[in-house]
Nucleic acid binder design. Structure first.
Lengths: 224, 224
DNA sequence: CCGAGCTTGTGCACGCGTTCTCAAAGTGTG
DNA sequence: CACACTTTGAGAACGCGTGCACAAGCTCGG
């Protein structure tokens, strides 16, 4: 527990740390020993002042006149984000999206291992997706506890979302990534992030319409 | 061009309009003629003051002492979001995620119709997904123009993202929903929203870690 | 027609995040 | 060693979004 981790890190900064991490991973492969905030900003698609302020929340890991040591910074960010650990993940709702997420290779590489697939449809239970068999939702509690799942991915229809979220929380899950197009509440002490594809398209549509009729009003990336 | 459309609507408000829309659609089915900001706030998972302020940007569509007319409000929001129009959409990158998005029913219902599927893999070209055949990326420009596509969904690997984005923009696309885990820039006048699943998990991991090691993060400041 | 009871619309204060700016602190060269 | 150059770290100003609080405006009952 360093001095840096005692500082409160703004949510907007937390949301950008993964960007820096990814950018650094890419330069790391190119054997660059050190990187300036300006270069990192370019790679991450943000501005340099923001990079410096963000990184300063982690501690003073840079050297004036030189920049940041790539390896060291990578290590600090991954420690801060908990990427040094292995997080077992459960996906609930094995429809189109759930199946795609189960097969998605981008998760495992960064320490998120999908270990459990759950669905309510009896016809799907026992069916294999990749190396995993789909488990019945009746066994949710048991299998989530068994695998010490802390992070759950919710990919059910909207109608089932709140019920499943409640069950996940009851089983000890404290972080939920929610793809269901529904408002869904969780108790204090549980994190939930929402990804709603229809909403994203509707936001694009709004600006698209404005552009078509009158002047431009471009949106930017969201923080959360 | 109404009075409402002349006001600049804050980005945060635009992002919430789809929530209100969805909430209203659900109450609309229940034949409720009017709804209060408090009730709508509850359904949308936000607070009432925010609802009122957001809706006030669209114009004064409420009646004091009564609330908002559900049908009228629905109409105004959908007009503002461009949901009264039909938006043809192209998906580029028909891997796990692209295929799932192609089959996703949630889009079509709200005016977003997936009309074009594009991939670079020759083995995939011609293959049917649902009712659509996959088109070669060589024909991107032609097919995008043919269908008057304004909104593109990018579901390619990271390495191809920037190139595909450039091609989409060149073909006349002015809104891009980007699922590729890569920083990707578009010219002025083009909107791009990013959805990065790995980043979302990493953000959850950050807070998960904080919860696991200690309780609340103790705020301690160091003077420099 | 009046007064009680709701509910909207908005002025205002506050806090968070972004960006500008510049002193501090490092490197390298002659 | 001194000086020019580079880059970080943080103070300060600013803008945006949030939420409180309340006046304005509507309905309804008597």
């Amino acid at each position: 527990m360093t001095a840096a981790s005692r500082r409160r890190i703004p949510e907007a900064t937390v949301a950008r740390l993964p960007l820096y991490y990814r950018a650094l991973m890419e330069t790391g492969e190119r054997q660059v020993a050190t990187i300036s905030s300006e270069r990192l900003a370019e790679l991450a698609g943000v501005n340099a002042a923001k990079v410096r302020k963000d990184l300063s929340y982690l501690g003073s890991y840079g050297t004036r006149g030189v920049g940041y040591d790539v390896e060291y910074l990578l290590h600090e960010i991954s420690r801060e984000l908990g990427l040094t650990r292995d997080w077992p993940v459960a996906i609930v709702g094995i429809g189109n999206l759930g199946r795609a997420l189960a097969n998605y290779r981008g998760f495992g590489a960064r320490g998120f291992r999908v270990e459990v697939l759950i669905d309510a449809d009896p016809a799907l239970v026992g069916h294999r997706i990749g190396e995993l068999a789909v488990v019945s939702i009746d066994d949710l509690d048991e299998v989530v506890r068994e695998h010490s799942i802390a992070i759950g991915i919710l990919a059910t229809p909207a109608s089932a979302a709140q019920d499943v979220a409640d069950r996940l929380v009851a089983a000890g899950v404290t972080s939920i990534l929610n793809f269901a197009p529904a408002v869904c509440s969780v108790p204090e002490g549980v994190s939930m992030r929402k990804v709603d594809l229809a909403i994203e398209l509707q936001i694009l549509s709004f600006y698209q319409l404005r552009r078509a009729t009158s002047g431009a009003t471009p949106p930017r990336e969201r923080a959360g």
